[in-house]
Nucleic acid binder design. Structure first.
Length: 261
DNA sequence: TAAAATGTTCTCTT
DNA sequence: AAAGAGAACATTTT
């Protein structure tokens, strides 16, 4: 679930619910998702409140008066705000209990997600070589980042040091819309093709955010609309779209419409 | 039932 | 040295 649009939706949800709530206690149900020792994590957040948030790529940063938290969701996960009289959501790993009797659960089904106490957002993204966010990166920076690399274009798009926030389904969708095959080596792409990729990248992100990232609500010319398990028919040419592996990830690309350059 | 899953990081190699 | 390829990670679902 959590590519840039999902995390943006989590960010908006977080801001509408948990922001400015005073943290009465922190329950760690599975310390594996914490980067810091459990006791330190709990001690540093108890009694504080979430003052502000920022999304950068797939990362959600949450600030309190004295701390910055990096929240990452991995392959599965979300946040859920609920009244404490209700059951804790399934797969909750850490729960922040507020003074108002509501709580915010950090949910991570596969436990690939992480909660980390960090020094600052700038330091974090620099340490991790995370590029500017895909929605705000300047075209020239995106182009330069692509041209620095020698991998196939799908691997380059998935690389968070190209533009932060692109994940597996969005990479496929960008390449489908730009009619470029994912195995194309990124270096051979023309300026026009790079501009096209950039434009589609931002269009797709905005479209996914606007549709609340509900797959069925995506435009009919998106391959992502048709899922990633069953057989997909190309909305452009009608051919069956094969499932392959590119950059170590499952990949859907139309052999007719997407050329290898 | 074994495989696959909307991600990142580590290790090995070049 | 730095970049790329591939495995590893942990868990659930189909």
């Amino acid at each position: 679930m959590p590519e840039l649009p999902e995390v943006e939706i989590f960010n908006q949800y977080f801001r509408e619910t948990a922001l400015n709530q005073s943290i009465k206690s922190v329950e760690v149900l599975n310390a594996k998702v914490l980067d810091s020792p459990e006791q330190e994590f709990v001690d540093r957040l108890r009694g504080q409140s979430f003052a502000d948030t920022h999304r950068w790529g797939k990362n959600l940063f949450i600030q309190t008066a004295e701390n910055v938290i990096n929240m990452h969701f991995g392959m599965t996960g979300n946040v859920e705000y609920y009244h404490q009289s209700l059951e804790t959501p399934k797969y909750s790993r850490v729960v922040f209990l507020f003074d108002n009797d509501y709580a915010l659960a950090y949910v991570s089904k596969r436990m690939f997600g992480r909660l980390s106490l960090i020094g600052s957002i700038d330091q974090y993204v620099q340490d991790k070589s995370i590029a500017a966010d895909a929605l705000v990166i300047a075209y020239e920076d995106f182009r330069d980042n692509v041209q620095k690399k020698k991998k196939n274009i799908k691997a380059v798009l998935l690389d968070q040091s190209t533009a932060a926030g692109v994940g597996n389904w969005i990479a496929d969708e960008i390449l489908y819309q730009a009619r470029i095959h994912p195995t194309t080596v990124s270096k051979v792409l023309t300026e026009k093709q790079l501009k096209d990729l950039y434009t589609h990248m931002q269009d797709i992100m905005h479209t996914a955010i606007d549709t609340d990232s509900v797959r069925e609500q995506l435009p009919t010319h998106y391959i992502t609309k048709y899922g990633r398990k069953t057989t997909i028919i190309c909305p452009n040419c009608g051919a069956e779209i094969p499932k392959t592996v590119v950059a170590g990830r499952c990949t859907y690309a139309c052999a007719n419409c997407q050329k290898v350059f």
